[in-house]
Every structure is written in structure tokens, then in C-alpha cells.
Amino acid sequence: MKTSFTVNGSPFSIDLDPRVTLLDALRDHLNLTGSKKGCDHGQCGACTVLVDGRRINACLSLAVMHDGDEITTVEGLSEDGRSPLQSAFVRHDGMQCGYCTPGQLCSATAVFREIAEGWPSHVSETLDGPYALTREELAERMSGNICRCSCYPGINAAILETAEEDAGYAEAAE
């Protein structure tokens, strides 16, 4: 099936078996292997990408469902791989094996926007924002991205520092 979408700002038009997931389309057909396949089940979050700015598990979505969509993967988060968030992950050792890292980065990017747009989470005290990116809010919102190396302290420190030091980051992510 012919499908057209934009990935990291570049248009792609590809003919795909309708069974191909968005994740496999990115990894195997567009050679964008930054997005990872940890479970192929929507249970680990390693495949998290942004579709029209919102995070999804790319393994749970068929590529052909994304005709016309704008997709952002870890490769598209910055030109040089050294955005404030990416740099903070390195500085705070927010990764060890690195396999969950692209998903963590995409998820965190979406969290900035979700907070800015006033989306509640399971730990929010009310359903009406605005919400501050507290440690508790962050931990809850990032719990769909498993890190077996258990770099949560570094991941959280990196995200919170980025949110604090770069107030414009949430807007920039939009």
C-alpha cells in the first residue's frame, strides 16, 4: 500500500505491506534505526515517536495509518544530536546501555508539551491545569518508558534541568 508521510521534516512516499508497523517502516524501510524495538507489544516504550507532536508507541501502530502525518523520531529532535535535552541526558548519565534512550527522549519532549497544554496525569490533584513539572508528575508521565539499566535518577534530573534552564523548551517542542 502506498503511504506518504513526513519524517523529521522530509517527505517520504513508500509502498508497504499493510502489516508493517510504523516502527518497522522507520527502522527497516527508511533506515531510521534510532527508534528501538524492545517488545513489539506497547509494553516498554523504547519505540516512542512523536506523531503530529504527540507521543505514541510506534510498534502498536501500522505505517499505513499515518498517511499525511508528521512524524518525529530521535534523529529529528535536533540537527546535531546535542539539543539541551540530549546534552542533559549525557551530562546526568541518563542512559547506560542506551537502548531505551531514544524513547525516553521522545517521551520527555512530549511531556514538556503535555504540561504546557495542561494535560492532567494520574497523579495530578485536579483535572484542570495548569500543572508544574514536579518530580512526581514527571515520574508518573515517564513511567511508560522502561529502563532496565534503571537510569531513572539521571533521566529525571536531565528532564527537570532542561525544563528549568530552558523555559522556552516546551514552546520550542511544539
Binding site: G34, V74, E75, G81, R82, F89, V90, M95, T101
Partner: peptide, 9 residues
């Protein structure tokens, strides 16, 4: 290697 890991490369 952190820089490669955050860039997805």
C-alpha cells in the same frame, strides 16, 4: 558513547 545513544546513531 552517550552522544551516539542520545542521537540514535
Amino acid at each position: 558513547d552517550g552522544w551516539l545513544k542520545v542521537a540514535g546513531t
